[in-house]
């Protein structure tokens, strides 16, 4: 049994085809170890959600995987059959979303929605599935689960629905949970509850989690390792402490500095990154960050830097961090 649970290498995804194709993922390399929580950080258009969808082979119709591989537990997913994928999605990989309300069926009781995958994937009887659904609800901290199981989604608050989603996602004991902005739509106090819940489930079930977020606070709270994405590529990969202690990529540095925190010293102005996040159809050449980068070099606009280790637990894709330039020429 290897340490790696999910390995994505050189994944390229485009919307449309031919002349009008828009490259959304431009060669993503990423790995998740068993039982670890990986934070995937990026802004709009960085490709963070698309990476997760591609990993689950749930891409929207217009998008296609053009190159690269996704291997889960030794199994290649880019070429896997539909049946194999359906099996994996229910049993080994599951996903939760930003808007639990839209991910649940509004005219079906939550209990039935939790029980459905149990019956399908674990072959439980209706009665056993219901009992187990109640246990699941209890295990994600929903008070009074015997009564709540017969609620419809609109009878529950956003925080509670996200707990239901987590219960559903974990009901078949997956090895990997992908959480796409799981707390963005929630209030801070509820966000804290959900993050605590995810953390405890990770320990309890030896679960690997990919948390997709735009918020370094969420990463600091929950992640073991971080990948920072920009313009359809990973620009930095590090252990969470190393990233916060010594961010390497100018984008990571800029983002961390630009995020106000409670501990931050009083200052008149916030350090800001200039410019705007580019739209995926207008991605700059070379390193996508170069037009906004304070450490821009001459070759940044023409050549794409590769992810190179700067220490055993940290890699960065940046020309300004290269010790020598010879391998690039």
């Amino acid at each position: 049994m290897t340490q790696q649970l999910l390995t994505i290498s050189d994944l390229q995804v485009a919307f449309g085809s031919g002349e009008n194709a828009v490259q959304a993922l431009r060669g993503v390399d990423l790995s998740v170890h068993r039982g670890e929580c990986l934070g995937l950080v990026g802004e709009s258009g960085s490709g963070k959600s698309l990476t997760a969808l591609a990993a689950m082979r749930l891409l929207p119709n217009a998008a296609r995987i053009n190159a690269g591989s996704v291997s889960f537990d030794g199994e290649e997913l880019t070429s896997a059959s539909r049946g194999k994928l359906e099996y994996l999605r229910g049993n080994d990989i599951s996903m939760i979303f930003q808007e639990p309300m839209s991910a649940l069926n509004p005219v079906m009781k939550v209990g039935d929605q939790i029980a459905a995958p149990l019956r399908k994937h674990m072959g439980l009887s209706p009665k056993a599935a219901r009992a187990r659904a109640i246990d699941q609800l209890a295990s994600v901290g929903i008070p009074d689960p015997q009564r709540r199981i017969d609620n419809y989604p609109h009878e529950m608050s956003g925080g509670m629905l996200q707990r239901v989603m987590i219960a559903m996602a974990l009901s078949c004991e997956p090895k990997l949970l992908i959480a796409d902005e799981p707390t963005t739509a929630l209030d801070v106090t509820i966000q804290a509850q959900i993050l605590d819940l995810l953390r405890s489930k990770q320990k309890e079930l030896d679960l690997a989690i990919i948390v997709i977020t735009h918020d370094f606070g969420v990463v600091a709270e929950i992640a073991d390792r971080v990948n920072v994405m920009y313009g359809g590529r990973i620009v930095e990969e590090a252990r969470v402490r190393d990233l916060f202690d010594s961010p390497q990529h100018p984008y990571s540095i800029g983002l961390l500095n630009a995020t106000p925190t409670l501990e931050m010293a009083e200052q008149r102005r916030l350090p800001a990154i200039g410019g705007a996040v580019p739209h995926i159809s207008e991605m700059p050449s070379g390193c996508a960050f170069h037009p906004r980068c304070p450490e821009r070099r001459s070759k940044c606009d023409s050549q794409v830097p590769k992810l190179d280790p700067v220490s055993p637990n940290q890699s960065v894709a940046c020309w300004a961090r290269r010790q020598s330039d010879d391998q690039a020429a």
């Binding site: 106090t189 804290a192 918020d215 600091a220």
Partner: peptide, 24 residues
């Protein structure tokens, strides 16, 4: 106090002692 304690940490070593509020 609870609101402040729920603000996500600025560093993994500074995760706050939470005051968890019950329910919604």
């Amino acid at each position: 106090e609870a609101l402040l304690s729920a603000v996500p940490a600025s560093h993994p070593d500074k995760r706050r002692e939470r005051i968890l509020l019950q329910g919604d």
